[in-house]
């Protein structure tokens, strides 16, 4: 992986508030064009990290780069969109007026800002509300507007802190589709969310923090794959020793065994046909053979519990 492939790189990024730890030696690599899920319990340090990245908090130590520039350089934020967790906007303005202000701050021309504003408002379903004052917006509409505001300049990197917290299920589905469409266009999305189901549906990579420390990181598919555990449902009772011998013959080990169920650990998925063949050979009658899947929730609970035990 070359440096050009990375849009975020943090090395031992740390934030302390007096004696309290916000983030502790966080090392992250986020690849261009990926949706990166950043997970953790409440108060784990997720928002602290995002605030350091977008310049709202100064790191205590460590370093970080964003789009090739150090995060202390305000120009690094030129290609970045940000939806804060506690989103609030100048409620005495209309969406078009506020986007015009952001366009000026971004150095966009008036014509470009007007066109981009209409596009992003349409993208989040607010095309009909462009002349209403923001104070008339519901919380969900304000969150949609926040996403539109973050998208105004067509950012290369988008930080979204709990982007669907105020949305109904339909709105959440729309935002998921939007994120996938953005990824397809090459935008990198850094997604802070408590909603693990949503993260699982859209993210390519995830990292989990707890008490300010990084406890797990990697490609979502790899993390969810985990060890190869096979569940076998039996229609008839079988002799435990015979079944165990059959499992051992293909290099596996029995994790759980009951009258009607067998849970087996294998070296890899490619060993599943051999396992089935060995079980048939000993006359085991099976109704289901399935690889056990981890969910993001089970992974999350597992790694945060391990971190606490450690």
């Amino acid at each position: 992986m070359t440096d050009e492939d990375l849009v975020i790189r943090t090395d031992d990024l740390t934030k302390h508030y007096g004696r309290a730890v916000g983030c502790e030696r966080i090392c992250l690599r986020v690849k261009r064009g990926h949706i990166f899920g950043f997970l953790g319990p409440n108060g784990a340090g997720k928002s602290t990290l995002v605030k350091m990245m977008v310049g709202l908090h100064a790191p205590t130590s460590g370093s970080a780069e964003m789009l090739g520039l150090p995060i202390g350089d305000f120009r690094a934020r030129a290609g970045v969109g940000f939806l804060p967790e506690n989103f609030r906007y100048q409620e005495w303005l209309t969406p078009m007026e506020l986007l015009a202000f952001h366009g000026r701050v971004l150095g966009m021309t008036t014509a470009d800002t007007t066109t981009a504003s209409r596009d992003v408002l349409a993208e989040v379903g607010l095309a009909d509300s462009e002349e209403k004052r923001l104070r008339a917006f519901s919380k969900g509409m304000q969150q949609r507007f926040g996403i539109a505001c973050a998208l105004l300049s067509g950012p290369e990197l988008l930080f979204l802190d709990e982007p669907t917290s105020a949305l109904d299920p339909l709105g959440r589905a729309e935002v998921r589709s939007l994120l996938l469409a953005l990824r397809d266009k090459g935008t990198t999305v850094f997604l802070n969310s408590h909603l693990l189901g949503e993260v699982e549906q859209v993210c390519d990579e995830v990292a989990v923090v707890d008490h300010g420390r990084l406890v797990e990181a990697g490609a979502l598919a790899d993390l969810l794959a985990g060890p190869c555990v096979i569940e076998v449902d039996l229609t008839e009772r079988a002799a435990g020793e015979v079944l165990s011998a059959a499992v051992r013959s293909v290099g596996g080990s029995v994790l759980e065994a009951s009258d009607r169920k067998l849970v087996v650990a294998l070296a890899g998925e490619e060993r599943i046909p051999a396992l089935v063949e060995a079980l048939v050979t000993v006359h085991a009658r099976m109704s289901r053979v399935e690889r056990r899947k981890r969910t993001l929730e089970s992974l999350f609970l597992e790694v945060t519990a391990e971190a606490r035990d450690a």
Binding site: R77, F87, V105, G107
Partner: peptide, 14 residues
Amino acid sequence: ESGVAYAVLARPIR
């Protein structure tokens, strides 16, 4: 206090 500043100060502005 209201959070209005976040979206502005996260822009490329000193």
